[in-house]
């Protein structure tokens, strides 16, 4: 049951008009600047805002098709997780999570059993009797995810779910959320402005700007072929998976990188394209990471040039147009690249 969102809605002065397909079992990330309409799309799917035109459908079930069909939020089977958890302050964690099952007609004890199970799955079973006010950000967000999960939703909407968390907590919650999303059978939509979240959690990315979709594709497609300067800046980064042993990281393709900070176990590595320097010959200096490679493709974005590089590690480098002229680059050229260890950003995966 994929989620089809083909809608137009006017909210205040902005019109949001998008056509998005979110396949079942996949996470579709919605990226875009503030005010692009990301949250509006979520609110329309949840039924908190009625669309003006178009259709929102889950498989064969029409959720909203003006003027004749509008399914009220309680009957949509949509679970939502907001950035600021929005746990009800007058209920403890368990009753917050039990809220959904209770609304669906479960008895109090049944609902609490489901809630306890849900909390357990998110690793916060011990906090069942805690009030939201006493929970840390990460704990509260896990409870909020457990709450969305406990209603057994058909669709999951995540609005900046990690946005309010500090870096350390963020990594942990991201990993658990990823594990949970991998087992979620329905379509999930993740609104974020953090490319790392999108790269780590999403299968597909939809870029939203000024209320319209400007690019759609898999994560790999978008990061390697951003359609605009904006997208390039937003998400056009290099994402690698690998395994860390101290400061050494072995990538999935077998290459080796040196990072500044030690990290053991599975890691997610990002390298900003503008942190990669290109040279005609082997560079001298302090860069720990350098190797020869081949130019596969060259894209110009005004005063910037994006250069796609081949094995041993597929990377995108971004240099100024002036530098590109100086290097006199052509597709097929052999070049050396160098990256400082401090530019290798590694996250536990």
């Amino acid at each position: 049951m994929s989620l089809k969102i083909d809608m137009t809605v006017e909210v205040g002065a902005t019109t949001v008009s998008v056509d998005i397909d979110a396949p079942a079992g996949q996470v579709t990330a919605l990226l875009g600047p503030n005010g692009a309409g990301k949250t509006t799309v979520l609110r329309c799917v949840a039924g908190n805002v009625a669309i003006d035109d178009g259709v929102i459908a889950l498989g064969d079930t029409i959720l909203d098709r003006p003027p004749d069909t509008f399914v009220a939020p309680p009957r949509r089977g949509v679970g939502i997780v907001y950035q600021d958890h929005l746990l009800l302050p007058h209920l403890d964690a368990l009753d917050n999570v039990a809220f959904g099952p209770r609304c669906h007609g479960r008895s109090r004890s049944e609902a609490r059993a489901i809630a306890a199970q849900s909390l357990e799955r998110l690793g916060v079973g011990a906090l069942a009797r805690a009030r939201p006010g006493t929970l840390s950000g990460g704990e509260a967000q896990r409870v909020a995810i457990a709450r969305a999960l406990a209603s057994d939703p058909n669709v999951l909407l995540l609005d900046e779910p990690l946005g309010a968390l500090d870096a350390g907590t963020r990594t942990e919650v991201r990993r658990d959320l990823g594990a949970f999303l991998a087992s979620f059978a329905g379509p999930a939509i993740l609104v974020t402005h953090d490319p790392i979240d999108a790269l780590a959690l999403a299968d597909r990315v939809v870029i939203l700007e000024h209320g319209t979709v400007t690019q759609t594709g898999t994560v790999a497609e978008i990061t390697s072929h951003p359609a605009s300067r904006y997208v390039a800046d937003l998400i056009g980064t290099n994402l690698l998976r690998g395994r860390g042993h101290g400061t050494t990281i072995t990538t999935s393709s077998g290459a080796t990188l040196t990072a500044a900070d030690p990290l053991d176990g599975p890691v997610l590595v990002t390298i900003a394209p503008n942190a990669i320097a290109l040279h005609r010959s082997e560079p001298e200096g302090s860069s720990r990471n350098r190797w020869p490679t081949t130019v596969l493709h060259i894209d110009g974005f005004g005063d910037r040039t994006r250069v796609q590089l081949g094995p041993p590690i597929a990377l995108v480098a971004e240099i100024t147009a002036a530098a590109a002229r100086d290097l006199n680059l052509f597709v097929g050229d052999a070049v050396w690249i160098s990256v400082k260890a401090t530019e290798i950003a590694a996250y536990a995966d």
Partner: peptide, 10 residues
């Protein structure tokens, strides 16, 4: 808060 409660089935 009310929106979330709505999506949870209330």
């Amino acid at each position: 808060f009310e929106d979330v409660a709505g999506t949870l089935g209330a």
